[in-house]
Design a protein around this nucleic acid. Structure first.
Lengths: 340, 340
DNA sequence: TGAAATAATGTAAACGGTTACAGTAAACGG
DNA sequence: CCGTTTACTGTAACCGTTTACATTATTTCA
């Protein structure tokens, strides 16, 4: 192999400073003391030579990548900005790097997720980023993981960070029924088997049950937590010959709410007079939609931050087992019928 | 060093399959043909042993990381979702990984950006992610870079991908003046020295000049392209004792527009009757703000995609020198005063 | 004062791949 | 039929660090 590497290595630094490579390495990693004089000299030489340690070489020797991975299903939702922001802040403070990758286990192209044990020290797995089998495999090898917006399969007990979905949804749907007299509430669910989606659906059904309203399968649509898909689903539903009566929509999340508003406007419904609309997440734009969106405030940035912190706890061998569930809160605005 | 690694290496695969490590390596990288029989056997052994190549070792030996980096100022804007989405799609297709890092050259903590030549093969630099000096250094070493939402310093000629800012802003501001009779137009600029911001400001001034309206420094505020900062700036401006008359706001970008709407609502202005509002980007929520936001549609996902593609061109030694400027388009909605 | 503890440093073997170079067997061409 | 090309394969050096172990210099203390 030709020696074409022009980059300056730890040996160059060592030679220039008149010490061994081991000393340089120790100085860089600050794990073993180095005499003040040598330290001084090394600092000098390193800046003079513009030495930058070679990450791959470090990784190989130390068996640490100083990288954590975030595995997402997709990047189709404004929701990810606060989530990423929370994660990135922690990662940066720890002087780690963050690899962001999308992968959906159930998608056709069954390429394995591009991140894992060999190029990351740990993984943040969002929602359905991995199927249970993958989780089990990784977990069996003791690979550090924290689940985000999903909980661990019972047999695995991987730490997780989620938000409270069910009770708050029930409360909000009951509000719709009780305060605004709604009885035919469309439920636009997220991805099938997605945990947030399922738990919100449970909350929805509990509310109906509590108020003695029978559940109607015709009032359930698939919105996938995506603006465009939500629009399509509702537009389809409304354009359909057999019009099913409804007087409210639980939109799944705020991003889907945008699609819902678009479809309702398009078909001439007044909100909230004809149809009440509620979302979930309280993204930044929610107060400024037309009408302002009643929604559930989820502490998304905190979710990201806490998930990352727990992952680092794991890396540092403190084992923060268990599931964190962050509280949520209803924000009443006009789209549900309230006059705020 | 104790041999505690439990992971299966290329040598294990080679032994098990009865070939040399070189053959395994060749098979994996598919750069030199391997006989069908051996390939078959290797596939078998590799899945049986659950062999996963060690990224760091590959990087070290091949001097390629198969990672590209994205350097951002921050993650405070919904704008980044489509940008990231465009980038990530390309990166995934190329079977690379994407490191996302935030770094602002002008910030107090002058820690160097955590990504560069030794842990990435190339860099996407968003806006002011690096100062010109850093760019010059990296460029001098021939490190592949593509600038996003900024152009190259003239002396460097680094490829870049931006959107057309100036003419479209001028056109939109002239629309405000001509069609809606606005003459006191507040300009909420983005970060000082940020290129989009500067060019939008130039467009703003050109429009005033073209219409014979004197530029008034009192009508310029700092919004930083951030929702909360924009709100603060305008709230401050409005709460101030000496009230300066104004009849329109160019908000800098859609995210800041949200803050502007909040402040205007709070202080009792009617939009667009009292004050017209225009944004930039046409983020997904723009049509559903109250009122629907007149804005400039920027092809942000395409910006991400094209920037990533150009970076890969660079990595493959096709040199796509020059600056790509993607066209933008005004989307008229109600916030400017149009009745759509 | 000399043995023992302590602090700082050096030597060299990994880490797990890639690839230059060399070699062998089969196919080809005249 | 034999030299030459072609298609695979093997050997081993190297990528740039970390770190176990050994060594030397400096204190400490009985």
């Amino acid at each position: 192999m030709t020696r074409r590497s022009s980059s300056v290595t730890i040996r160059d630094v060592a030679r220039q400073a008149g010490v061994s490579v081991a000393t340089v390495s120790r100085f860089i990693n600050r794990n073993v003391p180095v005499s003040a004089a040598v330290g001084e000299r090394l600092n000098q030489v390193m800046t003079e030579l513009r030495y930058v340690p070679h990450a791959a070489a470090r990784n190989l020797a130390s068996r640490k990548t100083r990288v954590i991975g975030l595995l997402l299903n997709n990047l189709h939702n404004d929701f990810f900005v606060p989530l990423l922001n929370g994660i990135e802040a922690v990662v940066r403070k720890k002087e780690y790097n963050l690899i962001v990758a999308t992968y959906h286990a159930n998608s056709r192209n069954a390429m394995p997720p591009p991140i894992g044990p060999h190029n990351t020290d740990g993984l943040l797995v969002f929602s359905d980023g991995l199927v249970d089998d993958d989780l089990a495999n990784l977990n069996a090898n003791g690979f550090p993981m924290v689940l985000v917006h999903r909980t661990s399969p019972p047999s695995l007990s991987i730490p997780s960070v989620t938000v409270e979905n069910m009770e708050i949804t029930q409360k909000l749907v009951e509000h719709l029924i009780q305060e605004h007299g709604k009885r035919r509430i469309l439920f636009l669910r997220g991805p099938i088997n997605q945990e947030d989606s399922n738990r919100r659906e449970m909350g929805y059904k509990s509310a109906l049950a509590a108020k003695g309203i029978p559940f109607d399968e015709n009032l359930v649509l698939n919105g996938e937590f995506e603006r465009d898909i939500a629009f399509q689903a509702l537009d389809n539903f409304l354009g359909n010959g057999k019009r099913v009566a409804f007087d409210a929509v639980f939109t799944g999340d705020d991003d889907a709410a945008i699609g819902v508003l678009k479809a309702l406007h398009l078909h001439g419904y007044r909100i909230p007079e004809d149809v009440a609309v509620i979302g979930f997440d309280d993204l930044g734009f929610a107060p400024f939609l037309n009408p302002p969106l009643t929604t559930v405030r989820a502490p998304t940035e905190s979710v990201g931050r806490i998930a990352a912190e727990r992952l680092f706890d794991l890396l540092e061998n403190q084992s923060p087992n268990g599931a964190v569930i962050l509280p949520t809160e209803i924000i009443f605005r006009r789209s549900c019928g309230c006059r705020v």
